[in-house]
Amino acid sequence: MELDAGRLRILVEVAHAGSIAEAARKLSFTPSALSQQLSKLEKELGTRLLDRTAAGVVPTTVGAILVEHGERVLGELREARAAVKAAMEEQPQRLALGTFATAGEVLVPGALAALERQYPQAELSLVDVEPPGGYGLVTSGDLDLLITHRYPGVPSVPCPGLDRRQLLVDPLRVALPVGHRLTTQEVALADLADDRWISGAPGMPNRTCLSTLAVRANLELRVAYETADYHLILELVGAGLGIALVPQSLLAGVDRARVRIHQLGDAAPAREICLVHRRRPPALVRDLIALLRVSADRLNDAT
């Protein structure tokens, strides 16, 4: 049995999009044409590859296995095309970067602007990707570089065939409203057990981190307000509605008249910001990595 690379690509795109209609838009096909190709692929394999739900489509167990292999196949094909262009002295001039919002805010703008000056003819693009997503997009070549993170207590995502390297260690600080009873530079989690906390919803990385710290300290913490937006979290803290763990990289512009920043002395938690890319990245990707490291160094110096 020989798999058709075109149909494999369609399966991967549909799995990434979570929707046949969205994948059809991206590939410039009609949804019915994509459905027909997927049906042919399922018939060839003799098994269902996608489950249709009210929210869209998700791969079956067999489908997920084929998607994982398909991502690697597509990535290799794209890498082969880039190598041929380089051999013909046509340097690849495309770079797709995926990043989560807070890294995009503090690390990316200066680095992308510098890269654009260095490669004025390059086609640069940016996509929002919330961790732990994005690894499959790098494997398939839809993304050339991914900025992602890992909080304490959150399992590391396997990344066979990819390089993952640390860009920044971003300490998590305790944000307290001005007027809070604790005033020492370092505070202990046990001293904050009776406070109302502000964090992400269950399953979000910052909430998992907070829960992990609480379990380690044998504490139960009460999360009164749930949001993934750190800017809103700081506003809620400033309004006296609770306390929060906030990455140090986002604290440069915090209103110190309303919010005080403290170290969590007994745990010293930090999130790790990483870069993920395919092995043997082209010059465009290597240069962006170097520029992102400059941004990270400047951020460390500023904080």
Rank of each mutant, 00 (worst) to 15 (best):
I273W: 02
C274G: 05
A87N: 09
Q37A: 14
L38Q: 02
E13L: 02
P152D: 14
V12C: 02
E42W: 04
H180W: 03
E13Q: 03
C159D: 14
P202I: 11
R78C: 10
I261S: 01
G133D: 13
P155M: 03
S211R: 15
G110H: 07
R165S: 15
V169G: 14
V157E: 11
R256L: 11
P247H: 10
F100H: 14
H262A: 07
D195F: 04
V237R: 04
G134R: 05
I147A: 03
R7C: 03
V294R: 12
A86P: 04
Q37N: 15
P205R: 03
R279Y: 12
R181C: 10
L210Y: 01
G265Y: 01
T60D: 10
D301V: 07
E2G: 08
L167P: 06
E220D: 05
V187E: 03
D301K: 09
V276C: 06
R271A: 13
D191E: 12
V58H: 02
G200P: 03
I273V: 11
R286E: 12
P282V: 08
K26F: 02
V138G: 04
L95R: 05
L299A: 12
V178E: 06
S125A: 13
E90N: 02
Q36W: 14
A103C: 15
M88K: 01
E226S: 11
G46P: 00
V178M: 03
A201V: 15
A55R: 02
P131W: 03
A54T: 05
C159R: 12
L221A: 11
R117L: 08
L3M: 07
T61A: 15
G18W: 00
Q121T: 09
G141P: 00
L97D: 06
P177T: 01
S32M: 11
D194H: 13
Q166M: 13
M204I: 10
V187T: 00
D266P: 05
V57P: 00
L124A: 01
E226L: 09
R258L: 04
A23K: 02
L275G: 11
